[in-house]
Amino acid sequence: MAVTGSVFVAFLLFHMAGNLKVYLPDAELHFNEYAHWLRGFLNPLLPGSSFLWAFRAVIALCLVLHVYAGTTIFFRARVARGGFGRAITAKWHALTGRTMIWTGLIILCFIIFHLLDLTVGAKGVASKSFSGKATYTLEDGEVVTNAYQNLIGSFERPAVAAFYIITMVLIAIHLSHGIWSIINDFGGTASRTRSVFLVLAGLIALVIVIGNASIPLAVLAGVIS
């Protein structure tokens, strides 16, 4: 849990940094460049988009292990509880900790939707304007997919934008407990380290929700187009 969860946190931060390029002047260029760079990362060393595929394989493996471990914990916990209810208290980590499986499952649905929407461009999920073809010319003359326009096209649908925003809030809730759990899973008993993780959990959760959820909001508000 802690290992795969930490991989996700690193990935999310990295992914968000990329996403935030939509706010740069000349956003279309920078964002498409970034999307293109990601595909060809470490190109001289590894051929074609093999880095991207290796990366995807690691993330996919982590996802499978994470979901497997999470559901195992959920079912083991239910058995050990023995069918006796426990009142939900208003304490933050009691609420977030007990809803990890539910926030997690919604995130899982979101991940599938997100891939179909912006990576695959599946019919019925992606926006009508989605195009997987190379139509955008970079400064060096190379023609790449216009990932930027696909993103804008998707977020111009209010229901989809709302789904993205709600999921970001859920990811923040999942992470505010998840990052705090990491220190427990790795056996951190020192009081100061633990306080640092508690603060870090809240901070990273906030940064991710503000950074990512602001993009669909900005598209809806017409700030970026």
């Binding site: 916990a77 050990a80 009691a94």
Partner: peptide, 10 residues
């Protein structure tokens, strides 16, 4: 015999 820990804090 006992359950797994989810760091709930109760």
């Amino acid at each position: 015999e006992f359950g797994p820990c989810s760091q709930i804090g109760e």
